[in-house]
């Protein structure tokens, strides 16, 4: 049962991803990205990490994709271009990416993961509480640093996009 759901999610993810990188219309790309991220959230649920799934949907889809769509709209020309989205390097990139994928998958498949670890099933426990606790005890410094980072990003973005006073005049 879980396997079927897994395959459905996997297919959803991969197809959305492929459609995303090949779509001509950038707006469609953004929507496909959202679909992909939904699929990934589903995978997280399968892995019994509900917290991560939630965060994924909230932040990635809710913030990042939405922001991308904003920027797409801001940078679209009025006539709307549907130019082919592939640049000159499509063939070499395809080959390189394919080789990379094949190599790694070969390595992965040949490894017998379960002689090395005991058990083969996912822990059924949901770790939200433990995550929370870890944030405020062992991982408090990264937690704070990430906050500062987000602040810096915020200020940086505002500075980058602010209009110069002279431009207005």
């Amino acid at each position: 049962m879980a396997l079927i759901i897994f395959y459905c999610m996997a297919v959803l993810i991969l197809i959305s991803a492929i459609l995303m990188v090949t779509s001509r219309n950038i707006f469609h790309s953004a929507l496909y990205l959202a679909a992909t991220l939904f699929g990934v959230a589903g995978i997280f649920v399968l892995l019994n990490s509900y917290f991560i799934a939630g965060i994924q949907v909230l932040i990635y889809i809710g913030a990042v994709v939405v922001l991308s769509i904003f920027v797409i709209n801001l940078t679209k020309k009025i006539t709307g271009e549907n130019i082919p989205q592939f640049n000159k390097q499509i063939i070499p990139s395809f080959i390189v990416a394919a080789i990379a994928v094949v190599l790694i998958i070969l390595a992965v498949l040949k490894t017998d993961w379960f002689k090395r670890i005991s058990g083969g099933t996912i822990a059924a426990m949901d770790n939200t509480a433990i995550i929370g606790k870890q944030f405020l005890t062992d991982f408090i410094i990264p937690f704070e640093v990430v906050s500062v980072l987000l602040l810096a990003a915020l200020i940086g973005a505002i500075v980058l996009v602010a209009k110069d006073r002279e431009d207005e005049k």
Binding site: L14, A17, I18, M20, V21, I83, P84, Q85, F86, N87, Q89, I90, S93, F94, V96, A97, A98, A100, V101
Partner: peptide, 11 residues
């Protein structure tokens, strides 16, 4: 892999 392909080819 799909992500790498996308980075290298998207206009």
């Amino acid at each position: 892999g799909i992500g790498v392909f996308g980075i290298l080819t998207r206009r």
